[in-house]
Each structure stands twice: as C-alpha cells, then as structure tokens.
Nucleic acid binder design. Structure first.
Lengths: 201, 201
DNA sequence: AAATCTCTCTAACAATCGTTAGAGAGGCCT
DNA sequence: AGGCCTCTCTAACGATTGTTAGAGAGATTT
C-alpha cells in the first residue's frame, strides 16, 4: 500500500471515530510512521485528506449503484441452484459490499458525524442512507409487482416499510459503537426474520 | 438565565454541531460574553461541561418516561373531546416534548457524534433512541391488544414496524441538518400518514 | 466596620495545532 | 557523470489549545 493510501486509511479510521477536527496531523503521521512534512507532500492540507476520502467514496458508490442496476434488470443471469428473488439478492449484495464493507461503513460513520456542519457531506449522507436505498427497493419491488408476484396497489407501502425497517437496523447495529461480529450477526438475523415474514417463501 | 446555564446552553449548541473536541473554551466564552477564567469558576474543566449536559439530559429523560407511563396506564383521564387512542397521545407527546424539544434534539445530535468514542454516551444513545421508544410502543400496543382493539398474535410485529418507521423518520428528518420548520412539517406529515394507515380510524 | 463569600477580571503558562522552508537520499533519463 | 524527479527527513514558525494564579468589585454575614 502506498504512503498516500496508508494516510487515507489511517485518517478515515481516526476521523470516523473521533471526528475530523479532533484528529491532528501528528496523530495520523505517528500512526502511519512518517513525519508531518511527508504528509504535506501527498496532500496540500488537512482538508484535502477529507475531500479525497469523500471523492473516493463517491466513485465507489457510483460503481456499486450501477452494479445493483445490472442485477435488478437481469436477475435471471445471477440465479444459482435456488432461485432467489432479486430482492434478497440485491439486499445481500448491498449488505456485504456496502453496509458491512469496512471502507463504506467507516465513511457512513464519518458522514454521520460531519453532516451537522458540512452541507456537502450532509447531502451525500442523505443520498446514500435514505434516498438511494429507497429507490433501489422501489425498483426491485415494482419489478416483482409487474411480474405478478405481488399486488400492484400495495407496492408503495411495502417499499416504505421494507426501507424503514432496513434503515432502522442499520443505525441500530451497524452505525452504533464498533462494528463487531456480534452486531453483524444480530443485524443479519433481524434482516432475515423481517424478510421471511414480508416475502413468505 | 444564570451564567452557568448560559454556558451549558451555548456549549450544547456548539458541541452538537461541531463535536465536543472541535469546540474550544474560548469559542464558548466569547459567545457567552465572559472570560475563560470565569468559566472555570463554574466548571472544573471542559469535560465537566459535557458531563453536566449528559446528567441534565438523564434526569430530563427520567421525568419524561415516568410521565409517559402515567399517560399509558390512565389514558381515560387525558381524553378530550375526541377519544384519541393512547398510541396517538403518547406519540404526539413524545414528538413535542422529546424529538422536537430543542434541548433533547440537540442532545441526540451530540450523542450521535460522540457515541463512537465514548462508551457512556453510546449506551445512553442506544437507550434513548432504540430501547426506550420500542418499550413505550410495546406497552401501549399490548394494552390495546388486551382491550381487544387488535389481534393479540400480531402485537410483536406491529410494534416492530411502528418503531422502525418512527425511528427511520427521526433520523431522516430530525437528526439531519438543521431542525427547520420544513423538516418538522415533513416529519409530522409522514408520521400522520403512517398512523392513519396502520391504525385506520 | 470588618470579614467573608460570590463572581468576574487580567495575564500568563506549557503544550499542541496546521503548516512550511530547505536539505538529503535514491532512482531514472540524457 | 551530471541533472532531474520522487519521496522523506530535520527543524522551526506563529497561532491556538486547556488551564491557573491572583487581584478586584460587590453583596452578605459577623
């Protein structure tokens, strides 16, 4: 891993736990094992580290969303031995490579902290935790409804309830204290229980 | 308002927006209009301000919870011209004097920021945003079920869905950016829509 | 009237903050 | 071999951090 990547990695870990302003350049440097002036060779100032993290997250999310669209539109391709409904496929993909993913999870924590005094981060926070997940759920469930798997008229409320349940669980288990195996397990179990009830299969 | 109260008020406003560590003693003092040494007459150090805020919130919440218990157990007393079900009464009480209350709302924001590196605050955060609200909903809906208003076997899932919906709305509208009238209105409307659908009355 | 208590001030302390100038070491191109 | 580019270092800068000693003003108690 390059020095630049190491700096970003360490900075994200510290920022997401203590907040951007509470972490000093010297904290980051001593953890990485470099002198302060070396950091300033890779970043023009402290803010530049934060901006780079946000930019990296932006492109990461774009890739992820386009991949989700792909799965949603061609669910048949991805079916394995048991024909999972695309809801479950997309959800398990979102869990593994978004909510459980170390980089994304720490970025969500960082945004949760910084959103109150940074409008750019606030918008990204709202988009990635509320707007995008809702839209993803909506696309999938609309598709299921038009395929006749569920009644058309209930779509909106099914989406709302699914989305709100997943969101609550995310805040309760994944954006609360350390992301331990125990919390991941508890989260996964509750998601499974909800899905089993909602889409009885 | 006493100097001590002014300090706590200003500190809470600043802590909840920028985080505890990012706010300096001088920031607080110049906003209050006192010198640093005066602050140290009222608080033994910076941490003491935070601890005092947490303590104030703790007793505030205790009072609030005991009042909610009172309403839940004697709903008849509080009925006005139209006989609201106690669900709605408690919920509207919780909204006005908890989620919309300036002190409580700012404390929730502060706890949201500080929970990642302060275990005491994390526990209080989990209790006041997840554990307590769930229990309150459970008490009310159990009461409605035993009164025959709704089927007993569905109680658990009705509580879960109500709680998750309310929690999601809280994070989306009340713990996101500034607490504007617009966001309050949007929150209130969505709560109303959900309740109207859930407890068709 | 003297003494005590309550509250605020001036002025300073060492430590830490973000940031920079400039030198040096190693690899690559001419 | 000489020059250039990449990366890291030493050493320091002015500003800001949390905190404290000690004096002074006003009200209250003795």
């Amino acid at each position: 891993m390059s020095t630049r990547d190491k700096i970003m990695d360490v900075a994200l870990n510290m920022f997401s736990e203590r907040g951007y302003e509470a972490v000093s350049i010297r904290d980051i440097c001593s953890e990485v094992g470099i002198k302060e002036s070396t950091l300033y060779y890779h970043f023009k100032n402290k803010k530049d580290i934060l901006d780079s993290l946000v930019e990296k997250f932006r492109t990461h999310i774009e890739d992820l969303l386009s991949h989700v669209d792909e799965i949603t539109e061609n669910p048949a391709q991805k079916k394995g031995k048991n024909a999972d409904p695309s809801v479950q496929m997309v959800d398990s993909y979102m869990i593994d490579s978004y909510l459980f993913d170390p980089f994304c999870n720490l970025m969500l924590r960082l945004m949760m902290i910084e959103q109150f005094h940074n409008e750019e981060i606030r918008e990204l926070y709202e988009k990635t935790l509320f707007t995008d997940p809702y839209e993803i759920q909506m696309n999938i469930i609309k598709r299921l409804a038009s395929a006749g798997v569920m009644p058309e008229e209930d779509v909106e409320w099914i989406v709302r309830e699914t989305h709100s349940y997943m969101t609550m669980l995310t805040f309760k288990y994944l954006l609360n204290g350390d992301l331990t195996e125990k919390r991941k397990k508890a989260y996964y179990k509750e998601v499974h229980d909800f899905m089993a009830r909602r889409f009885k299969a």
